[in-house]
């Protein structure tokens, strides 16, 4: 998808992807630090207001980073594989952070299960699939692909979006999310208890 775009053909693809991913991770870390620092504010109303804003930005950074990272890497001419890797850099960093946090209280195997199968992590990881699908179509529509005969609406993007919507339905909507929650618990039970 869009591999032919080489805005800066002189730089290796990995370099074109690395910088946006690093910036995204940097912003996320900064938001974490500021969130913790806000705790020192004594004024309860000021704290609550600023913490709420910070929290929203933090959630956006973790859950929706690929909306920004993918187009930037696209227009920097990174390959499809590099664009996807760059888009996943922050969600994976989040998962590693969660793995470290959770492994303080459970075994390594359980922490791995947590990162791979519990709903928040899955929402973040699988959510990127759909967001990348949307981003790809948006990028195509903004680039000169059309003149080269590439379609804006393409099978890959549509499948990615449908996959994410299907997952969201089962994870959040069907049975109010309890069915999915129960399924994860049952899998855990059969594996660890």
């Amino acid at each position: 998808m869009g591999d032919h775009l080489q805005a800066q053909p002189q730089a290796p693809s990995i370099q074109k992807a690395m910088m946006p991913a690093a910036v995204a991770i940097g912003i996320w870390l900064l938001l974490h630090i500021t969130y913790d620092l806000l705790g020192y504010i004594e004024n309860i109303h000021l704290y609550r207001t600023l913490a709420s804003i910070n929290w929203i930005l933090l959630v956006i950074s973790v859950g929706f980073s690929s909306v920004v990272v993918y187009p930037i890497t696209y227009f920097r001419g990174a390959s499809f594989r590099m664009r996807v890797l760059a888009s996943y850099a922050l969600p994976i960093a989040w998962c590693i952070k969660e793995f470290i946090r959770v492994s303080a209280n459970v075994t390594v195997a359980e922490a791995l299960f947590f990162v791979l199968f519990t709903s928040i992590q899955l929402l973040i990881l699988i959510g990127q699939v759909g967001l990348i699908g949307i981003a790809e179509m948006v990028c195509r529509s903004r680039s000169s692909i059309m003149s080269e005969g590439k379609k804006v609406i393409n099978a890959g993007s549509i499948i990615a979006i449908l996959f994410t919507i299907t997952f969201l339905y089962f994870a959040l909507i069907r049975g109010g999310g309890y069915d999915f929650h129960l399924m994860v618990k049952m899998i855990y039970r059969s594996m660890f208890l």
């Binding site: 705790g39 309860i44 207001t49 709420s52 933090l58």
Partner: peptide, 20 residues
């Protein structure tokens, strides 16, 4: 809700990574 701890802000907290 000023009688509650200040952490009870508009959105649920991130303390210890909890976002549930």
């Amino acid at each position: 809700i000023d009688h509650l701890p200040k952490w009870a802000h508009r959105f649920s907290g991130m303390a210890n990574g909890e976002i549930y």
